[in-house]
């Protein structure tokens, strides 16, 4: 009971500040811009069946020329299989100038939400020190670990709220801009050279779930740095660098050893990439492996934060 009230306290301290609302406005603005981009780059898809057929026949001609490498050939084969499946089952591709297509493409915006959450999570502990309110917080009859945990949980709650808001806004903006064309309700992807056919809502749930897992782990990292060094600048800077510079680190490390990158937490972010999207930058890994690595790091970050916070003398 008191635990819930602690989380309530911490969420209030997030949403009663201007920063929270500025982030929300940025999120809405980007969603609307995104819709304009979708409008501008929109292709006419009224004859999508003919388009796919034309593409397949072009691909089959290319295939006859045997001077391409194996990966390219496999990719082409998969694309042809997917197109064939679409034609057979009458499943239209998810064009971004349809409502559901726009909602799907708007999940890209979620990487900005990760940054917002790193900013919030990376300052939620250190700002109490800079405001001088940490001592006011810690003279209450509540164990320190409970206070720290309530702070982390409230950041996760805010993360879920932002993701939900992003979904709702993209849906509304999609309806306003492309209301006439709802788009496909099925989503196809290729996994182990097989065409997978799922509901588009299930697909979106997995995209958002994957983003939430990213947010939780990267925020836990920012949270730990913020707790250790009482500096939000360091926590935010380092977390964002890792979030965006991860691939560079992967390239450098791979040059020395193929195995090491697999065990680095930020290279395992983006669980759904194992199925859809650019694919995981790691070779020979599975989604289960990545999930386990993320879980281990998450527990490590939280334990370090809790232990340091529990022992620290509050004196300034």
């Amino acid at each position: 009971m008191r635990g819930l009230r602690l989380i309530q306290n911490e969420t209030i301290k997030i949403y009663k500040r201007k920063v929270f609302w500025i982030m929300l406005i940025i999120l809405i603005a980007i969603s609307i811009l995104w819709a304009f981009i979708a409008l501008k780059t929109a292709e006419d898809h009224s004859h999508w069946k003919q388009d796919l057929q034309a593409q397949n026949s072009a691909d089959s001609k290319l295939e006859e020329k045997a001077d391409q490498d194996m990966a390219a050939i496999t990719e082409q084969k998969n694309e042809m299989a997917m197109n064939k499946y679409r034609l057979e089952h009458n499943i239209k591709p998810l064009y971004s100038n349809t409502v559901m297509g726009f909602v799907d493409s708007s999940t890209e915006i979620a990487s900005i939400i990760s940054i917002f959450l790193v900013i919030i999570g990376g300052s939620i502990v250190s700002q109490e020190y800079s405001w001088g309110t940490m001592k006011m917080l810690l003279i209450r009859p509540i164990h320190r670990w409970k206070i720290l945990l309530s702070k982390f949980l409230s950041v996760v709650l805010i993360g879920i709220a932002y993701l939900m808001i992003n979904f709702i806004i993209s849906f509304i903006v999609g309806l306003i801009f492309f209301g006439g064309d709802f788009g496909s309700t099925r989503f196809l992807y290729e996994h182990h050279n097989m065409v997978q056919d799922v509901s588009v809502f299930f697909h979106l749930l997995q995209v958002y779930g994957s983003h939430l897992a990213d947010i939780i782990v990267i925020t836990a990292f920012a949270f730990m740095i913020s707790t250790l060094f009482k500096s939000n600048a360091l926590a935010i800077g380092l977390s964002i660098a890792i979030y965006y510079g991860g691939n560079l680190v992967s390239v450098i490390l791979s040059a020395f050893n193929e195995e090491i990158p697999k065990y680095i937490f930020f290279l395992n972010l983006g669980l759904y990439d194992h199925y859809v999207g650019g694919g995981s930058p790691l070779v020979h890994t599975s989604v289960t492996f990545s999930a386990c690595i993320l879980a281990v790091y998450f527990i490590l970050f939280m334990l370090i934060s809790l232990l340091v916070f529990e022992k620290r003398d509050v004196a300034e």
Binding site: L6, N9, K13, K16, W131, G132, T133, M136
Partner: peptide, 23 residues
């Protein structure tokens, strides 16, 4: 302890409610 720093972006009442929830 030293200066009683409060959450400046909250009202006085919200500050007190904040601490109320901790007891």
């Amino acid at each position: 302890v030293e200066n009683p720093e409060m959450y400046k972006f909250l009202t006085g009442l919200d500050n007190l409610k904040h601490f109320q929830r901790m007891y």
